[in-house]
Simulated assay, not measured.
Amino acid sequence: MSQLVKHHLFWPLCVLAVLLLFNLCYSPDFFSITIHDGHLYGSLIDILNFGAPLILVAIGMTLVVATKGIDLSVGSIVAISGAVACLSISKASDQNALGLILTSVLLAAGLSLVLGAWNGLLVSGAGIQPIIATLILMVAGRGIAQLVTGGQIITVTSTKYAYIGSGSLAALPFSIFVVALVLVIAVLLTRKTALGLFIEAVGCNPAASSMSGIRARWVILWVYVFCGLCAGIAGLLLSSNVSSADGNNAGLWYELDAILAVVIGGTSLNGGRFYLTGTVIGALIIQTLTTTIYMIGVPPEITLVVKAFVVLAVCLIQSDTFRAAIAARWKSRHYPAEKEVTRHVS
Rank of each mutant, 00 (worst) to 15 (best):
L72E: 06
T279G: 10
V178D: 06
V310M: 11
A140L: 12
G151E: 10
G272Q: 04
I153H: 08
L197F: 11
L260I: 03
F50N: 12
A85T: 09
L63E: 09
S319L: 05
L56R: 03
M138H: 10
L106I: 11
H7N: 14
H8R: 14
I293G: 05
I220M: 11
A324D: 14
L106H: 03
Y335D: 12
V345M: 08
L137G: 02
V114H: 06
R191K: 15
E255H: 10
A140R: 03
L169M: 13
L122Q: 14
S168L: 01
I136T: 05
I101S: 11
V5S: 01
T277A: 15
Y294M: 09
K160T: 08
T155N: 08
T303C: 00
G165S: 06
G282P: 07
T291H: 12
I128S: 05
L147Q: 11
P28M: 04
L284I: 13
A207W: 04
K68H: 14
D257F: 15
I164K: 06
K91S: 15
Y41G: 00
S32R: 09
L229W: 01
S268A: 14
L63I: 13
A325C: 05
S332K: 15
T155E: 07
A207R: 13
L19M: 03
V74I: 04
C315L: 15
F30P: 00
S244V: 10
V18S: 02
L252I: 13
V139L: 13
Q95C: 08
S166V: 00
L87E: 10
A234N: 07
P53L: 04
G151S: 09
L316C: 09
L169V: 13
V219C: 09
A145Q: 05
T149A: 09
N241D: 14
T291P: 00
L40F: 14
Y41N: 06
N49E: 11
G51N: 04
T157I: 05
W253S: 13
T134C: 06
W118A: 15
A186T: 14
A328L: 12
A17Q: 00
I136A: 09
V84R: 04
L113S: 03
L221H: 09
L312Q: 07
A58V: 07
K192S: 12
C227V: 02
S346D: 12
K331R: 15
A313Q: 01
I153F: 11
A234R: 03
Q287I: 01
A17R: 00
G127C: 08
N23S: 10
T290Y: 07
I131A: 12
H7T: 05
L289G: 05
A208Y: 02
N270A: 13
D246S: 12
A133V: 07
G82Y: 04
A308T: 09
G228V: 04
A261I: 07
G127P: 06
V225K: 01
G235A: 11
I286S: 01
T149L: 08
L172R: 01
S332G: 10
S210D: 15
N241Q: 15
S2C: 00
S43T: 03
S319D: 12
P53V: 04
A52Y: 02
I199W: 01
F30N: 01
W11D: 00
V310R: 05
A245I: 10
I286A: 01
I89W: 04
I281A: 02
Y335G: 00
L13K: 05
S43V: 00
G228I: 05
P12V: 13
M61E: 15
